[in-house]
Structures are given as C-alpha cells and as structure tokens.
Simulated assay, not measured.
Amino acid sequence: MIRYLAIPVVLILLLTTGCQTSMLKQFNEVKPGMEKDDVLDLMGSPSRSERFHGKDRWTYVFYDQHLRFEKEVHFFDGNAIYVGDEWQPEVAKSAVTMDARNEERNKEIDAQIAKDVEDHRRAYQDFEAKAKGTDKVRYVPEFEPIR
C-alpha cells in the first residue's frame, strides 16, 4: 500500500521541480508601466529597496546558470518607470564629475579670496599712509645756523 502511494508522490515531485522558471525569464516579463503589486506577484520581494527623490528603487539579485544578475525596477507614483540593469547616472551628472567640478570651483573661489585679501591689505596701507601723511615727500630746506 505504501508503495502505491509513494509512486504518485514521486511523480508529482518530479513534475513540479521541472516547472520552475528562471528568475531572468520572470524579470524579462516586467515592463515599464506595471504597478508595484504586479511586480511583486511576478518577482516576489526585492533584495534591496530604497527611496530617493520621490522614486522607489527595487533591486533584485539572483543567479541564473551560475551567473549573477543585479536588476532594478524604479517606481514613481506606484508605476514602474525603469526596468533593467543597475542604473548609472549620466557621466556629466555622476558624483565623481560633480566633485571634480566643485573642487575646481572651490579653487577658483579660494584664489579670488586671496586676491581680494591682498587688494584690501594694499588699500588699507595706502589709506593709512595718506592719513598719516607719509605718502608725500616733504621738502625741508637745510638751514645753516646763524652765528
């Protein structure tokens, strides 16, 4: 009797293990415009999620045929607006580029401040000289003492 029950159980297990679909195929079914619930039903919970500038960013990390994939879905107002590989900002807007621009601008500002400080120091010295009268050459004739 146990033997007759074991055969259908083994067959069911074999059939259900062959029905698994790869996460990569499931992810390829995710399209922009899908709602969060639809993505959750299809892919399950994300490996990571974050909220930035009013957008939700879900990251799915999975393996398919021994290859690691990291895919992202971005949502705005509950709808997917980006589906694909890990999103990278434009090179012109990347943190490294912005830091380099800011550093260059800071150097320009520092140079301008140093120039202004030197100009103000000279202007004060000129003002002080005029106020004391040391800026003018004074001619004092030499007199011979009277005997």
Rank of each mutant, 00 (worst) to 15 (best):
K55E: 10
K55M: 15
D56N: 12
D56W: 05
D56S: 10
R57L: 12
R57K: 15
R57N: 14
R57C: 05
W58H: 04
W58V: 01
W58P: 03
W58E: 03
W58N: 00
W58D: 09
W58Y: 12
W58K: 01
T59M: 13
T59C: 05
T59E: 15
Y60N: 02
Y60I: 01
Y60D: 03
Y60M: 04
V61I: 15
V61E: 10
V61A: 12
F62P: 10
F62N: 07
F62S: 06
Y63I: 01
Y63S: 09
Y63T: 14
Y63K: 15
Y63A: 05
D64Q: 00
D64W: 05
D64H: 15
D64S: 04
Q65E: 12
Q65H: 00
Q65N: 04
Q65S: 13
Q65M: 07
H66C: 02
H66V: 09
L67V: 11
L67P: 00
R68S: 08
R68G: 07
R68T: 13
F69W: 13
F69E: 04
F69T: 00
F69H: 15
E70T: 14
E70P: 00
E70F: 08
E70Q: 14
K71Y: 14
E72G: 06
V73H: 02
V73P: 06
H74F: 13
H74V: 04
H74D: 09
F75A: 00
F75G: 00
F76E: 15
F76V: 06
G78K: 04
G78N: 11
G78W: 06
G78D: 10
G78H: 06
G78R: 04
N79Q: 05
N79H: 15
A80H: 13
A80N: 02
A80W: 15
A80G: 06
A80C: 03
I81N: 01
I81Y: 08
I81D: 14
I81G: 12
I81T: 15
Y82D: 05
Y82L: 12
Y82N: 08
V83S: 05
V83T: 02
V83Y: 02
V83W: 07
V83D: 08
V83M: 06
V83H: 07
G84H: 07
G84A: 11
G84F: 08
G84I: 04
G84M: 12
G84N: 05
G84S: 09
D85Q: 00
D85T: 11
D85S: 14
